[in-house]
Simulated scan of single mutants.
Amino acid sequence: MHALWRLAALGVAAICGIVSAAGTEDSAKRSGFDFMTPETQALQADDTSNPGMLWVLQGEQLWQQAEGRADVACAGCHGDASQTMRGVATRYPAFDEAMERPIDLAGRINSCRAERQQAEPLTPESDALLALTAYVAHQSRGMPIIPATDARLARFRDNGRRLFQSRIGQLDLSCASCHDDNWGKRLGGSVIPQAHPTGYPLYRLEWQTIGSLQRRLRNCMIGVRAEPFAFSAPELVELELHLMERARGLLVETPAVRP
C-alpha cells in the first residue's frame, strides 16, 4: 500500500513539476477569477446571478437582528455596515488582545456575539456564520488587500508560511507544490490557481453552496491524504495570515464564485 501511495505522489509531482520554495512575484499575481471560464466570470460579476449574494442578503438581515441575553444587534453597536465595515476584510486576520494571537473575520464575529450580545457562538460553516462573514466582507469588495502590520503577528505569519511550504500527507506535497510553482497548469482537468484568498466566503460550484477559506484549506489537506486541522484551529488562521500577505494588493471579491 505504501508503494502505491508513493507511486501516486510521483504521478502528481510529474503533473505539477519540480517543487521550489519561491513565491509568485508581485507583477505576476493573479486572482483565481482570471483562471475561470468566461461563463463563470460572468456569474460572479452579475449580482443578480451570483448565488453567493443570497448569503450576503441573509447576512444583512442578521446584521439587524437582536441576539443573545443582551438583546442587541450587530447594527446596535456598529451601525451602517456599508460605512463602518468598509475595509475591514482587507486587513484580517488581526491580532486579538484577549487571545494573544490572530483571529480571522469569522472568529471576530463569534467573539462579538459572546462578548457584546451574550449569545452562543455560531457553528463553523453554518449558514448564519457564513452569511454574516460574507456580508461584512462584501462591504470591502473592490478594495485592495492590505494585511495588518501589527508586529505581534510576525511569528504567526511566519508559521503560516512554513505550513504553506511544508510537505504533508501520503502524497508528500505542500501547498506551494502546486500554487506557487505550477499555477496555470492543469491538474485533474482544472487549472491550478495561485491560491489567493480574495473572495471568501465564496460560492463554489463543486460544493453547490458557499464556504469558508478554512473549508477549502481542509479540502486541500484531505486531497493530499493528510489529516486536516479542525475548523478554527490556530494553524488555519496562520495559513490565512500568510495567504493574505501573498495576496497583498489584489482586490476583495466577496462573494466570489469558483468552479
Rank of each mutant, 00 (worst) to 15 (best):
A8Y: 13
V12P: 00
C16N: 14
G17I: 13
V19K: 07
V19E: 13
S20Y: 04
A21V: 09
A22N: 10
E25C: 10
D26T: 10
S27N: 14
S27F: 14
A28C: 08
A28M: 11
K29N: 12
K29V: 13
R30I: 10
G32E: 13
F33E: 05
F33L: 14
P38G: 10
A42W: 03
L43E: 05
A45N: 13
A45F: 10
D46G: 04
D47Y: 03
D47E: 15
T48I: 05
N50E: 08
P51A: 06
M53S: 00
M53A: 01
W55A: 10
W63A: 09
W63C: 08
Q64S: 08
Q65I: 01
A66Y: 00
E67S: 11
G68F: 11
G68S: 08
A73S: 15
C74V: 10
H78Q: 06
H78A: 09
A81K: 01
A81F: 07
S82R: 07
S82P: 00
T84D: 06
G87D: 04
T90Q: 02
T90V: 09
R91Y: 11
P93R: 01
P93V: 10
F95R: 00
E97K: 02
M99K: 13
E100I: 02
R101Q: 14
P102W: 06
I103Y: 01
I103V: 13
L105I: 09
G107D: 06
R108N: 07
I109M: 12
S111F: 12
C112F: 12
R113G: 04
A114S: 13
E115A: 14
E115R: 09
Q118N: 11
E120R: 03
L122K: 00
T123A: 14
P124H: 07
E125Q: 09
S126P: 07
D127L: 10
D127C: 03
A128R: 02
A128F: 04
L129D: 01
L130Q: 03
L130D: 03
L132Y: 03
L132R: 01
T133R: 02
A134G: 06
A134L: 01
Y135I: 03
Y135P: 01
V136H: 00
H138K: 05
H138N: 12
S140Y: 12
M143F: 08
P144F: 10
I146V: 15
I146H: 03
